[in-house]
């Protein structure tokens, strides 16, 4: 293998997925390199969540290949994909309500790794990830008592606890204020730097993503319509038309300016 191909963690080749007659993904090609931060954007119903479901093994593609570390992973059940190193944060967090915050994360430590640590070490690990996402002091609470944001953070901590090489994040930002978004952006950056995790980040809110990611992939009606640096995407007429609508160029331009100066 060439050094360049070793750099590639995930590769989707011509992935197609239908629900009945509806084509939700059409020959999607996608590459994620080690340690990179990639934004996946697209309008409602574009197929973003479906693509993440196919990658994480919750759905099987109708055709095409999904490779992780050079290994074909379609056909593998989701738990096996997790153990290979793909962590997943759901759009709407689904935690284990009968377990405490710490136990929710502990599940990830004990079952999401190929070599789970011993009991005491596992508990420490769980707390470590709770601290990383800023939930220290909450570890004994029942997750039912948490607010939506805290639930998302528990879900994130649980995904990180499986020690992924790549993290799939689905709309972490929906319904947040700008200040809160800033917090999440910082958090994801820190995760990537501290843990060296590559992140494929689905987001609706363009402002959140464009200043942060290395590369943007735009999905529309199940097909990749553009791919490139945030600056390129902001200029792409197809994207502007298909996804952003009229008047978006100015808004985008302003944000790129902001991102560039920070």
């Amino acid at each position: 293998m060439s050094p360049q191909s070793e750099e590639i963690l995930l590769r989707c080749c011509e992935v197609t997925k239908r629900f009945g007659g509806l084509v939700v993904l059409w020959e999607v090609n996608l590459e994620v390199r080690r340690g990179s931060l990639i934004g996946l954007i697209g309008p409602n119903g574009a197929g973003k969540t479906t693509l993440l479901n196919v990658i994480s093994g919750l759905l099987q593609p109708d055709s095409g290949r999904v490779e992780f570390l050079g290994r074909l992973i379609n056909g593998l059940p989701a738990h096996a994909v997790v153990r290979l190193g793909i962590g997943r944060v759901l759009q709407i967090p689904r935690l284990f309500p009968h377990l405490t915050v710490e136990e929710n994360v502990l599940v990830g430590v004990l079952f999401g790794r190929r070599k789970p640590p011993a009991r005491e070490e596992a508990q420490e690990e769980a707390r470590k990830f709770l601290t990383l996402v800023g939930l220290e002091g909450k570890h004994r609470e029942r997750v039912g008592k948490l607010n939506t944001q805290e639930k998302r953070l528990v879900d994130l901590a649980r995904a990180l606890a499986t020690e992924p090489r790549m993290l799939l994040v689905d709309e972490l930002m929906s319904g947040l204020s700008l200040v809160e978004m800033e917090r999440y952006t910082t958090l994801l950056r820190r995760i990537r730097e501290q843990l060296g995790v590559a992140i494929l980040w689905v987001e609706h809110v363009m402002e959140a993503i464009l200043g942060t990611v290395d590369e943007v992939v735009v999905l529309d009606h199940g097909a990749v319509i553009a791919q490139g640096s945030p600056a390129e995407i902001a200029q792409d007429p197809l994207v502007i038309e298909a996804y952003l609508g009229t008047g978006a160029r100015e808004v985008l331009g302003a944000h790129m300016g902001y991102a560039g100066s920070s």
Partner: peptide, 25 residues
């Protein structure tokens, strides 16, 4: 045992259990 934790987790949510690495089946 650790299996107890897995059983509690998967009875709460099978999808999340799978995504945490539990072989639900």
């Amino acid at each position: 045992s650790r299996h107890g934790l897995a059983l509690h987790a998967l009875s709460d949510d099978e999808v999340s259990a799978e995504l945490s690495g539990i072989d639900v089946a």
